[in-house]
Design a protein around this nucleic acid. Structure first.
Lengths: 202, 202
DNA sequence: CACTACCTATCTACTAGTAGGTAGTACGGC
DNA sequence: GCCGTACTACCTACTAGTAGATAGGTAGTG
């Protein structure tokens, strides 16, 4: 897949730690709030070292979303392969969000969608890609549940997928100011339970 | 209501125009992106004149949310007094959001909830107040519909109100990167139609 | 005279980004 | 085994520009 040009002279985990710090800062404060100095001081390195790994803030932002999107896709893949019914998969999907919120963070792409107009085009494209992948995965699970008759929908799978994704993103957004993950859990349960075929509902 | 202390020596609409500009900038770019210079240049005045009306950015932010919250409450009051059934009131409520989105803006408090951790305490308090008022109004309308049997809910009115509010906020958030108000309308219709008593659904 | 509205000029702190340097390491040639 | 080359990682020191905020002034008005 990727040709090794020369060889890796040294392996540093600093690059990943920069992305970790940036991710946490965006999820809690927003992309336009933090600076290279914040990341540098958190990692006890110099600003120039952060620039060594990510020349510009735009490139740091793009790489951060790409990594987040990949790791999220891996989690979706794991849920997708589990031998449980579609409604349970959706509940586990919601649980993925709840875990993030419990750390007082929001979905990375929810924060970035709020600041969307201020972001460089490459970051905007990565954000749409994240939402597209989630909608596609959700639509597949919903269609699977519709065929197994464990899920009853009132519209096309893609429309229901979009409704579900945006409802969960919104539930995180509104729950955080109250520092109360139960708020999210209650809203998520209401939305997911609305899809369960009557007679099988919790 | 408000005691006139001395008298208004001169009446300027600059203060309101500053709030208009700030509101638009937050809704499209976020609170941490814009500066006093952006507002000054947009109004063709000087930065110091903006500081004359709002000494600090924190105070500007607080006043901006308070005004937004008041004008939103007035709109809710108008919908609440209309002689239409509860489900129609909820549809009109969703329409309120759709109008904002069509201008490529987000709900002011949705953007600020995304940047929540970076905001001064007085702004944080105003944001929670906005959500509280919306939830309270929605719960009242939902309870009204439940009693008239035009709405069927699967939980307490306040939980359904929270679900509805956060679903609509999320639907705006996710729709904007696609510049497509139809995405919002479809998600909103799905959520609202899920509350209509079966047999009366659209 | 007190007040509002707005101005010029300036401050300090911080922003993203750059120039150019040092230390350490993997590898090919000898 | 040792040495030069190329590379990564990180550093100090700096730039130009912008952030929010302040001091102190002018013009107009009741």
């Amino acid at each position: 897949m990727k040709a090794v040009q020369r060889r890796p002279v040294a392996v540093s985990d600093t690059r990943d730690r920069v992305l970790d710090a940036a991710e946490r800062l965006v999820q809690t404060m927003g992309f336009n709030w933090f600076s290279y100095a914040d990341i540098a001081s958190e990692l006890a390195i110099r600003k120039a070292s952060v620039h060594h790994h990510f020349a510009t803030k735009a490139e740091l932002g793009r790489a951060m979303i790409a990594r987040y999107s990949e790791s999220f896709a891996a989690a979706l893949d794991a849920i997708g392969r589990a031998r449980v019914d579609a409604a349970t998969k959706l509940t586990r999907y919601a649980k993925l969000y709840e875990t993030v919120l419990r750390d007082n963070r929001l979905c990375l792409c929810a924060v970035l969608a709020a600041e969307y107009g201020s972001l460089p085009a490459p970051m905007q494209a990565e954000i749409r890609r994240f939402f597209d992948r989630n909608e596609h995965w959700l639509a597949k699970v919903i269609e699977e549940g519709r065929q197994a008759k464990t899920i009853t929908i009132n519209g096309s799978p893609i429309d229901v997928a979009r409704m579900l994704l945006s409802s969960l993103e919104g539930a995180m957004l509104v729950a955080r100011p109250y520092g109360d993950a139960k708020r999210f859990a209650a809203a998520a349960a209401l939305v997911v339970s609305g899809l369960r075929t009557v007679g099988k509902s919790t």
